[in-house]
Design a protein around this nucleic acid. Structure first.
Length: 224
DNA sequence: GCGACAG
DNA sequence: ATCTTGTCGC
């Protein structure tokens, strides 16, 4: 997949912020796709360990969420975690992983914010803009904004507001489960973003035990 | 000055 | 995000 826009990454915070302000003006908040036209959706996330960042990009068939392919990439960590500048930390390694993909996704879903960001350029908007592919931000926690707790039923949601503007939605993907923070990334409106996220969470189940709990229970079995 | 603060 | 002990809930 080819990048439409390129720019330096290892910038001082002040310059990174200026760049975000410039790039955010190019983000398209309207939907340029038809739900029926989305055949391949990619999920992107990054992990860290010992000074190395590892990004994974998994392409799924939108219809049944069957895996088509996945690629990973690793890079030395070259930027600290600074709230609001996450894309400068994960951008390079994520782009490396995306470049390894043989297929081109119709939609990208990121673990982070889209325009629900101080300068309206969260990681989903930033990367979506650079590769010019419709993208959605789907975060586990809030960066900015205010909201009312959404209903408990799956699919219920409330709007995330910031400076008298709707910047995203707090969506219940499943009962009894913490809601996710959905926001426009690039070339997709909020309405569609919520629909896509709910579709992709269909049938999802939290692991019965976390790895930690699993280890503990195993240890107890050995003791007993 | 104080609180908030994606991953 | 990662590390990591104990604790609460189903």
């Amino acid at each position: 997949m080819m990048q439409r826009i390129e720019h330096p990454w290892n910038l001082p915070p002040k310059q990174a912020i200026d760049l975000q302000k410039q790039l955010s003006r190019k983000v398209i908040r309207k939907s340029t796709i038809k739900t029926n036209a989305v055949r391949k959706v990619a999920g992107i996330d990054t992990a860290y360990r010992g000074g190395v960042a590892c990004a994974a990009a998994v392409v799924l068939q939108f219809e049944d969420l069957e895996t088509i392919e996945y690629k990973t990439a690793a890079r030395p960590v070259a930027f600290p975690y600074v709230p609001g500048l996450l894309s400068f930390r994960e951008g390079p390694v994520i782009l490396a992983a995306l470049n390894e993909l043989k297929s081109t996704p119709d939609l990208l879903i990121f673990d982070g914010q889209g325009i629900a960001h101080p300068r309206r350029l969260g990681i989903a908007s930033h990367i979506g803009l650079l590769v010019d592919i419709p993208s959605i931000g789907c975060a586990k926690s809030k960066l900015v904004g205010h909201y009312e707790q959404p209903g408990e039923k799956r699919g219920s949601f409330s709007y995330l507001t910031y400076h008298d503007e709707t910047i995203g939605a707090v969506v219940r993907t499943r009962r009894r489960v913490k809601p996710v923070y959905v926001s426009i990334g690039h070339r997709v409106n909020l309405r569609e973003s919520i629909k896509f996220v709910l579709h992709c969470c269909k049938g999802y189940r939290l692991p019965e035990t976390t790895r930690r709990a699993d280890k503990l229970s195993r240890k107890k079995l050995l003791i007993h």
